[in-house]
Design a protein around this nucleic acid. Structure first.
Lengths: 259, 259
DNA sequence: GTTGCCGTGTGATGGCCGTCACAATTTTCT
DNA sequence: AGAAAATTGTGACGGCCATCACACGGCAAC
């Protein structure tokens, strides 16, 4: 089966302290600078001029975290922007009565906490590593100065926010318009497949998420996810082997996921 | 009681053509320039330096629309940013099977279509006037040049997007975490009350929306809205006279709206 | 091994609320 | 004013799905 991540409540403490982990690498190639980063050209914030990038590299503090680490918590004062260099991070929020919603699984090149830092408010999400990660944190003050100095970067920030806005919007849209649990779950799977599909044209991918987490992503309950995945398989829409999911009938599945 | 807006499908045609309405004013004070606009200091985009504002005023095209006018449609190519100078605009989107979701009622000073224009994509929402409005439209090309020239404006754009992101996010959060229709409706009413409350400390406000529209805002059906409003009144939580709503027990109501 | 924990599978139950249907009322149009 | 259209009010029905409850299997710790 898929490897579940233990230490869900693992917390390395405040970000300042955690930079002590600076030299720990959790079985990954160490990324040492932005210039040579593989994601440089593909992502919004990495794709800057040499000059800006160099400056950007200087004001940031690199750090590594193990799986389960909480980078920041919903409600914390937004002190830093976090650039995710490698690994995956779960972005979630929780209601007072304990219900959890997972807004996004962030990947390398994603910028976390941008909105809250720019607006000077609190983080609206909790960021937790679901794999060992490497990040680059930039303190708010430095980041704002950076934006001021490099107009180019402001545009990038605006674009990144625009894209965050869009995904949040699409989420809201989905939740509001796709009333059935199966539509929403299908949409989550398709979206995941599109971004995580391991190359090729077939929609086959690994999803190291529990049914509970899938439920939190699609706004439904754990049991319903279990039942729906079973139903999807019985209807030959998908195939599941361990953590690997293959979508057999993308058209029908897409149909199901209409919003 | 309240005035519903007729001509729901009223469409003045493409934006380019509609600027011919330039000199029509629908019973409102005409706003002639950004410098003297009452909303200047209060809203993100209006609050610029004299120089930037002057330039901003020059690249924009002013126009007025009657109630019911569609400013742009979901799926249109995002050609222009629209600054709403006066009046209210309903921002909505519709699923293929006809369900509608209202994301926001925009007011004076709000910027419409910013995300899509910055990203160079399609409008993701339909913008329709629910009152006579005055707007200032800026073509994408001009707007981007403006952002480039005035770094200050890029920051404003980023902030505006951040704020849009936040509301979209809160919407998604609400829909996902507040499972009951009454929570969601209560939240919509409270949010509306907070922004639209006519001064004073009491939460009394007018809401010129049909039950159907309230349903579209809270992700529930028209009948359920009717029933819930009745229930809220019976429980002495609110009072309704025509289009005027007064929240009698803000604490209890807030409790109800927890997400 | 065995103990415990976590994730998964599955049945039973019940309530919320979407939908249909139709009546009453208000608004708009001419 | 009178007709037509839109909005609102209300009852009945039924399905979806959240919730509870419990069984089963894998995995880690000891």
């Amino acid at each position: 089966m898929h490897t579940t991540y233990e230490a869900r409540n693992f917390d390395t403490g405040s970000m300042r302290n955690s930079t002590r982990n600076h030299n720990n690498v959790f079985g990954q190639t160490r990324i040492t600078d932005c210039q040579s980063c593989a994601h440089r050209s593909s992502r919004l914030f990495c794709n800057l001029s040499e000059e800006a990038l160099e400056y950007f590299g200087e004001i940031g503090t690199r750090a590594s975290f193990p799986r389960g680490a909480v980078i920041f918590n919903e409600g914390d004062h937004a002190e830093s922007v976090v650039l995710l260099c490698s690994g995956q991070v779960k972005l979630s929020c929780t209601s007072r009565d304990g219900k959890t919603m997972i807004l996004k699984i962030a990947g390398p090149g994603d910028v976390l906490g941008l909105g809250a830092v720019v607006a000077g408010t609190l983080y609206e999400l909790t960021a937790q590593a679901i794999e060992p990660i490497q990040i680059n944190t930039i303190r708010r003050k430095d980041f704002l100065a950076f934006l001021n100095q490099f107009g180019e970067a402001s545009m990038h920030a605006a674009q990144a926010l625009g894209s965050e806005y869009k995904t949040a919007f699409m989420d809201a849209r989905l939740l509001a318009l796709a009333t059935s649990a199966s539509s929403r779950l299908a949409r989550v799977l398709i979206d995941w497949a599109r971004t995580a599909s391991c190359g090729k044209d077939e929609l086959k991918f690994t999803m190291a998420l529990t049914h509970e987490e899938l439920g939190n992503m699609s706004g439904t309950s754990r049991e319903t996810v279990t039942r729906l995945l079973g139903k999807f398989q019985k209807e030959k829409l998908i195939e599941i082997h361990g953590a690997t999911i293959r979508i057999l009938a993308p058209e029908k599945f897409e149909q199901l996921a209409i919003a």
